[in-house]
Design a protein around this nucleic acid. Structure first.
Lengths: 149, 149
DNA sequence: ATAAACCTTACCCCAGGGTTAAGGTCAACG
DNA sequence: CGTTGACCTTAACCCTGGGGTAAGGTTTAT
């Protein structure tokens, strides 16, 4: 099976599949003409990879899942643990996003939203000392680091 | 005020401030020795920038907020509209993450989590046809594109 | 024979910086 | 006077997770 067919079957792009290979997540044999060639095992791996990505696993984490997948001595408890950790991470992200959302909601409510230049949102966001009359993300100092996960 | 002091005051890193300047979001005057020098206006802008970032605005969107901030002819309605659009974006992200979370929850429940190699999670994630007995993200084909927003 | 549809590698691009490296400046201390 | 340490400067490479494009080789069908 050539890469294009695999892409259609897994929902990945050919580019992504090559990228995963370059990162050591999957391997492929080559035909005489240099084309990558995939068998049933590869397709199972790539299907797992695609779905794990879709539910929020990072490539690093997908690599660990694939290692478990290929390990016939694995314990299902290990897989379950990884999934539960990912659930906990998602919960944390959900918390952060919810706090952002609520902060914006409160800002919006304090703004007239009319023709005037006076704007409570800009005032609150740029004020020097304690800007918000309500908690801004619980004073967590480093939110940006969460967003790239 | 030198960049280090501004960094401490706004919670940004000096690097980030220089990066914002390189992207045209803020400007700074220079002292004779080449050091960046910031006044009250700069600090207000950077405070706004830092807080807008923390509540989920992209750099591009922050640029628009700063333009409104500097525009004395602005209408507060425009600012409010931007905030409400961001709220809608956050709601969409929250939806996606919630679906991921629920999918993982169902996968985990179907897994024994014991010493055995047999694992429902890996089976479901790698199976060929209809893998999940439940909806996987509502069959949305392209979730990864949302994550980089 | 030639065009369409594949495939290959290789390069630059995005956000949002972190992390060196290599060096200039400035204050205080001995 | 010299030196140490804390600043500051630019430049340049690293990360994630690929997208996009280019330049070229292959295969297939017409």
């Amino acid at each position: 099976m050539k890469i294009g067919a695999v892409a259609r079957e897994t929902g990945l792009t050919a580019k992504a599949i090559r990228y995963y290979e370059s990162q050591g997540l999957v391997k492929s044999r080559r035909r005489d003409n240099g084309y990558r060639d995939y068998g049933r095992d590869n397709i199972k791996q790539l299907t797992l990879l695609a779905r794990a990505r879709r539910v929020g696993f990072s490539l690093q984490e997908c690599a660990e899942l694939l290692a478990l997948f290929d390990d016939t001595e694995r314990h299902s408890a290990d897989v379950k643990k990884a999934v539960q950790q990912k659930i906990a991470q998602l919960d944390e992200q959900l918390d952060n996003l919810t706090r952002m959302r609520d902060t914006l909601e409160e800002l919006a409510q304090r703004c007239q939203g009319d023709e005037q230049a006076q704007c409570a949102i800009l005032n609150d966001l740029s004020a020097a000392n304690r800007p918000m009359p309500f908690t801004l993300l619980g004073d967590t100092p480093n939110l940006p680091e969460d967003s790239h996960e």
